[in-house]
């Protein structure tokens, strides 16, 4: 393969490694911006992955599979919302319990699908643009979910900072009491944000089981839900930085695999630490401006709200 060919191929690998993280982290960002911390991302992703796979296999329609993945993970998020927003339970613990629940549920649902293949999502080349050398395959020759993941980041950025609804959502996350006092429906806004977060985690899961490695295997997320959570923090709650973080993390992961392949004599465990260490390092560099981080961090994150006060 030519050098340029290798470059394109590596970039494509990074993009697909980053996409499940991008979906889940963007969704979680919206939930957190509204003041809700849902640690159940891993569980929601798994439910999305198994639902997407199962529906696609049974119905033959990947589109239906993807929609159902978002709905099923959204259902998980609804459960989380009911327990934390309506019944006012602690969000951190409920989120962790949601992960236990989701791991179990996906395993039960997926039992009969282990060992069956499914066709990977088709690549949709943008006519004309895909033929551009280098940039064409990198930007314009992906499956629908990869395009969607980037579109969603832009859409979320636009929604949060350019629309009135986004302003309300941020207001709710920054001070639910103030938002409530002005008459914003705090709980309803949070429900919607949590549902969106769930649906996005479901899409991330569906990407795993329908595109990244088109198969179902128990626990196939292998911790990606946790990385997504970390990326939201890494991004200091800004959508564009989620994009940056996901590609950075994916990039370092892929690079360390390449480094091993070319025979760099550093123990593989140390190389495997790199993505985590680089993430910490970059976080330290971008967190130094306290005021900016404060500005973006939702002040009410994880806090219970009840309108009766």
């Amino acid at each position: 393969m030519s050098d340029i060919g290798i470059f394109v191929s590596v970039v494509l690998t990074v993009i697909s490694a980053a996409t499940p993280l991008l979906f889940a982290a963007t969704g979680e960002l919206v939930a957190e911006k509204s003041g809700v911390l849902n640690l159940g991302v891993e569980g929601m992703m798994l439910v999305g992955a198994v639902t997407g796979f199962a529906v696609t296999t049974v119905s033959g329609s990947a589109t239906l599979g993807i929609v159902c993945a978002a709905l099923a993970a959204g259902g998980m998020a609804l459960l989380f919302g009911f327990i934390t927003l309506t019944l006012l339970a602690n969000q951190v613990a409920t989120g962790l319990a949601l992960t236990l629940f989701g791991v179990g549920l996906s395993s039960v649902v997926g039992q009969s699908f282990v060992g069956t293949p499914v066709d990977a999502l088709p690549k949709l080349a943008v006519p004309g643009l895909a033929a551009i050398p280098v940039l064409g395959p990198i930007l314009f020759e992906h499956d629908a979910l990869i395009y969607l993941s980037v579109i969603m980041v832009a859409a979320v950025a636009w929604f949060l900072y350019r629309t009135r609804a986004g302003l309300v959502l941020r207001a709710v996350g920054d001070s639910h009491e103030a938002a409530h006092a002005i008459g914003h429906p705090v709980i309803r806004v949070r429900y919607l944000a949590v549902l969106f977060g769930g649906a996005m985690a479901g899409l991330g899961g569906a990407f795993l089981s329908l595109s990244y490695t088109p198969m179902w295997g128990e626990n196939m997320t292998a911790g990606r839900g946790w990385i997504a959570l970390a990326l939201v923090v890494f991004a200091t709650w800004r959508p564009a930085r989620v994009l940056l973080g996901a590609y950075l993390f994916g990039g370092v992961t892929i690079l360390q695999l390449h480094a091993q392949g070319v025979g760099i004599e550093i123990p593989s465990q140390v190389l495997s630490m790199l993505p985590y260490l680089v993430t910490i390092l970059v976080l330290v560099l971008i967190s130094r401006d306290q005021a900016k981080v404060r500005l973006n961090a939702p002040a009410c994150i994880g806090k219970v709200f009840h309108p009766s006060t």
Partner: peptide
């Protein structure tokens, strides 16, 4: 699965 697949991609690229 994902990481195993990524390793395969890296090796094929090399």
């Amino acid at each position: 699965p994902g990481k195993e697949g990524d390793a395969a991609k890296a090796l094929i690229d090399q």
